[in-house]
Design a protein around this nucleic acid. Sequence first.
DNA 1: GTATGCTTTCGGC
DNA 2: TTACGGCCGAAAGCATAC
Length: 366
Amino acid sequence: MSQRIIIHIDLDYFYAQCEETANPSIRYKPVVVCVYSARTEESGVVSTSNYEARKFGVRAGIPIVRAKKLLESTSAVFLPMNRPLYESVSQRIMALIQSYGDSFEKSGVDEAYLDISEGSRGNYDSAETIASKLKQAILSEAHITCSIGIAPNKLLAKIASDYVKPDGLTVVKPKQVQDFLKGPVNRIPGVGTKIEERLKQLNVRTVDELARLNPIILNEVFGKSLGGYLFRAARGEDNEPVRDRILPTQLSRISTLKRNTSDFRIIRPVLRDLTQSVVESLKGKELSCKSVSIIGILSDLSIHTRSATLDSATTDSRLIIEVAERLMQQFLESRSQANLRRVGVKLSGLSKLSGQTNIKAFFSTS
DNA sequence: GTATGCTTTCGGC
DNA sequence: TTACGGCCGAAAGCATAC
């Protein structure tokens, strides 16, 4: 099997860039896309911001009130999330990306992998040309910039796309892998503050230090799966194929309560609305679900879930609501002091509805 | 022993 | 220094089946 060439495309500061494209007059101002909660006028967090806002320290996850303070001397624009807008921009771009390669994998609203081994015939100059044309196409069709990484596998392509941004194009040829991996450990996808901290205890701060670590120690500290992943990642090794993700694996809804409570009479209608909404989405995608979960986030921001598996896959909103309510009631009873801040519901074990039709069609045509 | 399935938690964006 | 969302996918941890 010849060497693969994989590209990873990351749409730059995506939600905020969609807002800039929809309204170009805000382009040179700090733009902050916010998730407002129902709690107070200003409560909520920053979903994402453009680079102008990032200069002031405004980034994803910080409270909106804090972002306002950081930007009070500027003409910053604060906008609520407009998910349907981002979804439609994403759809158009994903279709474009898919047409530039062999196998395609969407890995989020703003990210995708593309296997261009055939299209480039394994040649990195050809690969770079394809990637440049793709960037140009996305820019002229959707007015969105992106950062692309080109590499022999998904892991390195992902790291590479993050190396120069926004509007970057980074190539990592097989021979350059060792040099490319000289950076801090958090350059590896999946290594956040937690793993970084544990590695620091082992005196490991960079990827090449990680590569020199004894694999037995790695497995002892992180377990077989994560340990094995870190061992290979430190060497730039990854064999994961680029594959179409046909079905989502879960659908969920969550919202913040007006005020903290443990009173089921207040939580119930909220849970009901969330469940109705997620079931609508389930049906819209022609899916059924086998498991129902509830999510409770307490006043201390700790996260708790409870779930149940059904006898058979369903789309019946009455049944799903019944199960969700029972799970929530049981959770509240099991922790009578639980002070809920946020409530959510999740459907999983998803499968495509109307399998029957397809099987009939299969037998009648074969 | 290994495979499989289920519940819960974790981390990215 | 406090402040604090709404999603997603994946894996840990456990139980049960073969």
